[in-house]
Amino acid sequence: MHSNYRISPLGDRAVIIEWEQQIGGEIHRQVMQAFHGLRQLRKSYILDIIPAYASLTVVYDAVLLYREQHGYTVETISNLITATLNNASAVAPGPSRLLEIPVCYHPSLAPDLPVMAERKNIPPEQIIALHTAQTYTVYMLGFLPGFPYMGKVHDQLVTPRLKHPRVKVPAGSVGIAGAQTGIYPQESPGGWNIIGRTPLQLFDAAAENPCYCGPGDQVKFIPVSLADFREMTHTI
């Protein structure tokens, strides 16, 4: 396990493990390796493990930790995590899923696509081609339940967030913000540049696994026509 990380308290019921703050495959590989290593411990006092781009938050129950360790200090959980991370290099990161997500890039569903094309002086078809050519890593979920932060987009597609966020962004909207791409699981306000929409439901609170995407997944966007989008919207 790479040693270039730090563990800091995050309130009195969690700690955060932080690596070098950058978006990249190697850093995220270490995050996911630590994530799987801690999950495999199956400790009752670890309540949740939340991966992000370059950090991992561990939420724990201090009472259960005290009982299991026969004592508890501020350093107890950090020492246990450090010992796990030191052995995490032997932990298999787990299989990565490849998710093919249909997206319709029709102008009626992609309000920012023409603007992006004009500003970048390239046709909308090229933006679509660049967006669908890559396979993206889901680095984290956040902002909304099930919202996947994915990257990185092609350099030509890097675009800052909107100066004035929309009050309503439809569920399924696919957007770009900076070098990231993501999907809105529910209707909500938002400032990402919307270039398409998927008919898939990205979050279902009643499902056994509520989130369609998960950290570490690989995502490939598959372009579909407006007619296919409408048909899938009624059948999925």
Score class of each variant (00 low, 15 high):
K120N: 14
G94T: 01
G196F: 13
P185W: 12
K163E: 15
C211Y: 11
A227F: 05
A88Q: 08
V63D: 12
D12W: 03
L99P: 05
Y184R: 08
P223M: 02
Y184M: 02
V153Q: 04
I81L: 07
P51F: 04
P111D: 03
F203V: 07
K120T: 03
E100F: 04
G142Y: 14
D61C: 03
A177I: 09
R13I: 00
V31R: 04
A90N: 10
F229M: 01
L202T: 05
I176D: 09
S188A: 15
H154F: 06
G151D: 11
I128R: 12
K163T: 14
A207E: 13
R97V: 08
R230Y: 10
P107F: 05
I17Y: 01
E20F: 02
I236L: 10
C213A: 13
Q22N: 09
G25Q: 14
T181S: 12
A110L: 08
A83G: 12
K120F: 11
E125D: 14
E75T: 13
H2C: 02
Q40Y: 10
T73F: 01
A227Y: 03
V31F: 07
P51W: 07
G94L: 01
A117L: 06
L41R: 15
L65N: 06
I176E: 12
G146T: 10
R6V: 00
A179C: 10
Q33I: 03
P123I: 03
K220M: 04
F221G: 03
F229K: 07
G11L: 01
N86I: 02
L65C: 12
G214T: 12
Q186E: 12
V63F: 12
P148Q: 10
P215G: 06
P93S: 00
R97C: 05
V31S: 08
I101S: 06
G216C: 09
H70K: 15
G37F: 04
A83M: 04
M32A: 01
Q126L: 15
G151L: 01
T233M: 11
I101H: 07
L38P: 08
S225W: 08
A52K: 05
